[in-house]
Design a protein around this nucleic acid. Structure first.
Lengths: 244, 244
DNA sequence: GGAGCCCTTTGATCCACGTCAATACGATTT
DNA sequence: AAATCGTATTGACGTGGATCAAAGGGCTCC
């Protein structure tokens, strides 16, 4: 027997239970019944066009966002105009956690391509995670993962040389594409050299030169934003074989 | 009428309700009854001698720690020996959040001086925060604050010059000492030039030279680890007046 | 309270990355 | 298919901070 569901509902409602990203996202570790409860609180989806803001620094914090399609960057801007990209986010990753601390967002989230997010009203998430232990724990893990990730970036910015930073970046991207079922060795970067540079604490020329160098050495094949990793162990060696 | 409490209990039990750090720490925003519940789960205190580890990278994660006295640094170490200080923590701040994500700590926490922490078993904290909404929210704020702080460090490492980094560091220390009721302008640094350098992505010689430069310019008076800030606006100007 | 050692300062030199500049490429629009 | 504009590459040169080196200075631990 089939249950009859109006088409409109299917279109309007977000359904974590149907989402192929649930293993990466908030529903991870929840049983089907709990996922249904989560489904109910995920109010709506929101489409964000390329280059548009999902939220801005200073905006009142109301919800966190799970990326359903597309990708984003987050950045912080100083009064004098300097900016720093603090991260690139892919599908299944959560945006907006910075806003909890002061009830206002402290960075900008900008779509790198036409994207779609699930809006998760934060008050309701806290409410449900008081009832659903596995949801509470998964949410805590996601926040903690963000902290660990940031420590990795600090290591990168604080103690690595340009080529090491780029190698670490490429290996990280590769790993995240893999986790999403894409090729580990061939992918399309959504961000510019300037944005990569900002993230890695380098100028865009330095990023470009490092790419060229990797290409010369047969580590990767670079064609603009299209990357093919030819020698993963070689990239990894670059990271650890640092002459002390 | 006075209630009679055995002296031993007073000594053994931690008491958030009695702690003058409660406005900075987990109890913030809780009503007295809720603080009592928190008191019950704070199992024990632990004394850590200078230079000793509170936990090490790889250790199984069991608890988070609130600093009751003293101060700590956290660092990450790469296989090739390079290390990066990811933060300095003072009284009332919480350590160990990195461990939630994988059930294992991902950094080292080392006491900068003889210190004492309150051990907060994490499972029980999650349990209680399912019952006490204000505790849940305060915990989320603390995690979020850590993320925002890390973004600030990324900005510092990614887009500031040496003297700007040190100025930002000093202003940050000043502000945190102030929040703890100490002088905003005169304090004692617990960490070495090398540790400051690691945190700021600089070599210790560069840190030392920047201190000397600040002294020449009358911004601060430096005597080893004893710092007197003479011109706070001057330091702030250094941060924002960056020639683009 | 003295010995030893770690920490800090300062100078001289080097080099990785930044800066400036010119050109080339590619996606989008018309 | 040409025009336009943002993006990327590459070269030449400059510089901020790293590195190497050598004194001092002040804790810490007997």
């Amino acid at each position: 027997m089939k249950s009859v569901i109006p088409v409109t509902t299917l279109e309007i409602k977000t359904a974590c239970s149907q989402c192929n990203l649930r293993e990466l996202c908030l529903p991870f570790g929840l049983d089907p019944n709990e996922v249904d409860q989560l489904d109910e609180l995920v109010g709506s989806r929101r489409k964000i066009k390329r280059q548009q803001h999902l939220y801005r620094s200073g905006d009142t914090f109301e919800a966190i966002y799970a990326i359903r399609a597309g990708s984003f960057k987050t950045d912080v801007i100083l009064e004098d105009g300097r900016d720093q990209v603090t991260g690139f986010q892919m599908t299944g990753e959560v945006l907006g956690l910075d806003g909890i601390s002061t009830e206002h967002h402290s960075c900008n989230a900008i779509a790198l391509e036409d994207s779609e997010v699930c809006v998760i009203p934060f008050g309701r998430l806290e409410e449900l995670s008081r009832q659903v232990e596995s949801l509470q724990h998964q949410f805590h893990k996601i926040m903690s993962r963000e902290i660990v990730r940031d420590h990795g970036v600090m290591m990168l910015l604080g103690s690595m040389r340009a080529e090491e930073r780029l190698a670490a970046f490429l290996l990280n991207m590769s790993q995240r594409f893999t986790a999403r079922g894409f090729s580990p060795s061939e992918f399309h970067l959504r961000m510019t050299r300037d944005e990569i540079g900002s993230y890695l604490g380098l100028k865009l020329e330095t990023v470009s030169r490092a790419f060229s160098r990797f290409q010369e050495e047969g580590l990767v094949a670079v064609q603009q934003k299209h990357i093919r990793i030819l020698d993963t162990p070689g990239l990894k060696r670059l990271l650890n074989h640092h002459a002390v």
